[in-house]
Design a protein around this nucleic acid. Structure first.
Length: 399
DNA sequence: CCAGACGTTGTT
DNA sequence: GTCTGG
DNA sequence: CCAGACGTTGTT
DNA sequence: GTCTGG
């Protein structure tokens, strides 16, 4: 994958010293935190037209995130939909297939970011070449004309499976053209060429990486700080262990049943700096074990845990029939009057209810009959929702 | 014939 | 634009 | 890709 | 969680 990168290169670096004709380069803004929708310089062929151009190659600033030429003129361009394209399937996909013969281009960046997922936690890493030279990505571009007649050039970065050394971080990586031969082939190859040999994971040992501040996750955070290496926090269990160690008596019961493998996993990096010593015994200084975030247990309604008492109450309800997604009304026909026990529940919450007229449908479930029909939505969360409603909301979120 | 799609990623 | 599906 | 929101009627 | 916005 490749959804964020650093491109602070000078135009001269992108064109590798060649003097190329510039197109829209005034739009280029170097950035440590480039995301889809940004203008990025790409190198592409410029055959056909002006014959006098050097090398038939231009340096063209385009927006990252492909908007196919057949996109409806009235549509709002969405650069996040196709900022990547799977190299394995570009020959099959209508949006990419037609670009392979004559719309290949090269994207040069100093490095890119990848987020490692650990359960619900995400840690960004910066990946770059050991010697700092630019990474050259294989890309495809297209142009689209909007309703005003303005032409928009966009590109998509090809992806492939990850190299063996990056597999731990992510299962996809951008297609990196690691030498002049391969980048020349992608740029200058004949329209009918088979480019399969280029569209492979980059397996050489000169790709390096290290963890960076999670603050760069915000697309507006553009600063050299994005690529500063950070010291990863210790493994959760270790931190907790230290927390208890400090408070409790030192000679007390040891926390021996913790996962002892955990802290090694989080320390993956391959950086220019000296190899870090592996802290096998967890005796590393606590100096970087920053303040433990002890959040007060005040959660917004949509994160509130289900109250066990109410959950029990709701669990007594039979499951909704499959496909029921309207606001059902439950009627307990075991009661003497059908109207006596009518409880409205909602399983699509947070929106103002459906207004379309739907026929009433009945679903029998044991002693109960569920009736689906458009009703005023039950307020389930936020200010104004009562306690019971919020708990119901939590319940339905869980199921 | 016309209508409709046309994409990747990840997965709490 | 071009392919697939009805 | 990640960040950020997640809400409305009627009127105390 | 899930949707929208950048």
């Amino acid at each position: 994958m490749c959804g964020r990168c650093r491109c602070t290169l000078r135009p001269h670096d992108v064109s590798r010293g060649r003097t190329l004709r510039h197109i829209n380069m005034d739009r280029y803004r170097p950035s440590y935190n480039v995301s889809p929708g940004f203008n990025v310089p790409v190198v592409r062929r410029d055959d056909g037209k002006d014959k006098g151009e050097e090398e038939g190659v231009v340096l063209h600033c385009m927006k990252w995130g492909l908007v196919p030429s057949f996109t409806k003129k009235t549509d709002k361009p969405d650069h996040y939909k196709m900022f990547n394209s799977r190299s394995e399937t570009i020959r099959e996909k209508a949006s990419f297939r037609r670009l392979i013969p004559n719309s290949r281009c090269l994207v040069s960046v100093e490095g890119f970011y990848e987020w490692k997922k650990d359960g619900s936690k995400k840690q960004p890493y910066y990946i770059h070449f050991k010697d700092g030279k630019p990474l050259v990505f294989a890309a495809l571009y297209d142009s689209w004309k909007n309703a005003e007649g303005e032409v928009l050039y966009t590109f998509t970065i090809l992806t492939t499976s990850s190299s063996s050394s990056l597999q731990w971080l992510h299962d996809r990586m951008p297609v990196i053209l690691g030498n002049k031969e391969s980048s020349d082939m992608w740029l200058n190859g004949r329209p009918t060429s088979n480019f399969d040999t280029l569209l492979k994971p980059y397996e050489e040992a000169d790709l390096m990486w290290y963890p960076v501040t999670p603050a760069m996750g915000k697309p507006s955070f553009d600063s050299p700080e994005c690529i500063n290496e950070i010291q990863l926090k210790c493994d959760e269990s270790k931190s907790i262990s230290h927390f208890f160690m400090k408070k409790g008596a030192k000679g007390e019961k040891e926390h021996n049943n913790e996962d002892k493998r955990g802290h090694m996993k989080n320390d993956e990096s391959r950086s220019l700096k000296e190899e870090k010593e592996v802290d096998i015994y967890g005796t590393q200084s606590t100096s970087n074990t920053n303040e433990l975030d002890i959040k007060p247990k005040v959660l917004p309604p949509w994160e509130e845990p289900v109250d066990s008492r109410l959950k029990q109450e709701v669990d007594d309800f039979p499951q909704f029939p499959a496909g029921m997604d309207q606001h059902p009304t439950k009627t307990d026909h075991t009661a003497s009057s059908p109207e006596r026990k009518k409880i409205k529940v909602a399983n699509n919450v947070g929106t103002s209810g459906s207004t379309k007229e739907l026929p009433e449908e009945k679903h029998e479930l044991g002693a109960f009959v569920y009736t689906t029909k458009p009703t005023t939505p039950v307020k389930m969360k936020g200010k104004g929702a009562n306690d019971s409603q919020q708990k119901l909301f939590a319940y339905f979120k869980k199921n």
